[in-house]
Computed example of a mutant assay.
Amino acid sequence: MSLDRRAFIKAALALGGLSLGRAWAWESSEEETGRLLVIFLRGGLDGLFAFSPVADPQFASLRPSLSRTVLDRGIPLGDSGFVAHPACTPLADLYRSGELAFAPCAGTIDTSRSHFQAQDIFELGNGLSRGTSGFMSRAASELGGEPGAISFTGEVPLAFQGPTMPDVAQLDTGRFQLPSGRLLEAVRRAHAGELTGTALEQAIATEAAIAAALAEGGMEPSSDRGAATVSGFVKVAQDMGRVLRRTPRFNLAFVDVGGFDTHANQEAVLSRALTTLSTGIVTLRRELGDIEWRRTRVLVCSEFGRTVRENGTGGTDHGHGGLLLLAGGSVKGGRMLGSFHGLDKAHLNEGRDLPVHLDWRDALASSMRDCFLLPDAALDRILPNRPRHLEI
């Protein structure tokens, strides 16, 4: 941000010329601008498992096994008609303290139910399945000034591909992962006929066996695209909080987490995953400290939701609309964003999935506007073709 822009912001705020009173707005603090952290859950989170509409008369019959825990021990989320799964207790606490809001029917325009296409559409942020840059890279370009973007990933994600690249800091260092594609073939050729080549082939076979074991448990690791597993997220969140607190210039941040493609045995698998995710988010809050938490927006999302009806193996399949979480110290929380019209078949997408009533691009644009005071013209360059309204 230039000195002229800073002077303008200060003057405008002093005169009341810029309103920060919108639904997403952060209340003024000592900081001039905020921070946006996007936590992307790869695999397609079943939002109806995390935050369940128990007041809907059809919920229990559509999910005879997956509804038991929340019907017995769900934590009410105000008068929304939703309850939080016990695994999400830390998130329910943030909701009650006014630091978290949720949208049950959020998503992108994608209807393919393909992990990879849906993830690409989200990360590109242009309303298309192809593009030359991701929305985070375009946002970093619009903000300009000193480098202020960081990706807590092993590689630069599609969201950050483009003219302005982030710093990269992989915090999940406890997991060995082999290269893939042409790089793997090059490594194989380099070690062919050597003892190291034999060891390499053994490692490849071991990784394949682990992937097969995960698939038997109802997971599809391929949908994670190399993202850190959710099992290590508490430590990752702790480290992220420390990095961001000590480096205030990082005002755009991204992390992806895998482990949410639950076709089978969902109660056990997703309960563990959500416990770790929820604990990680409140750990991030603690490590950021009050001042940095107040200027931070945490936007949690997945490429799509899951089917409303559970399947025959105690899981759910790929769907459409899903759960969005918005957390932060100055978020206007304790409420539902967008709308929810119930689980009647007539209100579902193709009679089986939640519809999308809140487009991710609207959520992202609103957060970026309030974090960085960006005008509509800049937001249109970052998120072209955005719907510009909460209901679609």
Rank of each mutant, 00 (worst) to 15 (best):
G329N: 06
W293D: 00
E350P: 01
C301F: 13
N251S: 13
E310L: 08
G342P: 14
L244G: 08
N251R: 14
S278P: 11
L244D: 03
R242L: 09
T307A: 08
T276H: 15
L288Q: 07
N349C: 09
E303H: 09
T262C: 11
D344I: 09
T313N: 06
Q266S: 03
A273R: 15
A253F: 09
R297I: 06
T316C: 13
G259A: 05
A264V: 00
F340E: 01
R297K: 11
L252V: 00
L324Q: 10
G334M: 13
F254S: 03
S302C: 05
R309C: 02
R352K: 15
T276G: 05
G338S: 14
S330V: 00
W293G: 01
S330T: 09
N349Y: 12
F304C: 05
G312V: 03
R286C: 02
G319F: 10
G322K: 05
I291S: 14
L326E: 13
G333H: 11
V257C: 06
K345A: 15
V255S: 07
D261V: 01
Q266D: 03
T279I: 04
G305L: 11
N311T: 04
G280N: 12
W293C: 01
G338W: 12
V282A: 06
A268F: 13
G333L: 10
G312Y: 03
T296N: 06
H318E: 12
V257Y: 03
H320T: 15
E350N: 14
V255T: 14
H318R: 12
V243E: 02
R294W: 00
V308W: 02
A273S: 15
D239T: 09
G259K: 13
E303T: 13
L252Q: 04
T276I: 07
A264G: 00
L270M: 13
V331Y: 08
K345I: 11
N265Y: 14
V308R: 04
G319S: 07
R249S: 10
R352W: 03
G241H: 10
E292L: 00
G241P: 13
D290Q: 14
M336V: 10
G305P: 07
G319E: 08
L284K: 02
A268M: 10
E303Q: 15
G328M: 00
V269I: 05
F254Y: 15
E303K: 06
K332S: 15
T307N: 05
M336E: 01
R249M: 08
V269D: 09
S271I: 00
G322W: 13
S271Y: 12
R306Q: 04
I281Q: 08
T316W: 11
A327D: 01
S330H: 11
L274G: 02
G258V: 01
K332W: 03
H320G: 02
S271C: 03
F250R: 08
G322Y: 11
A327N: 01
N311S: 00
T313M: 02
F260I: 06
R297G: 04
I291D: 14
V269S: 15
S330L: 03
I281Y: 10
N349T: 04
R285F: 07
T296D: 00
G322L: 06
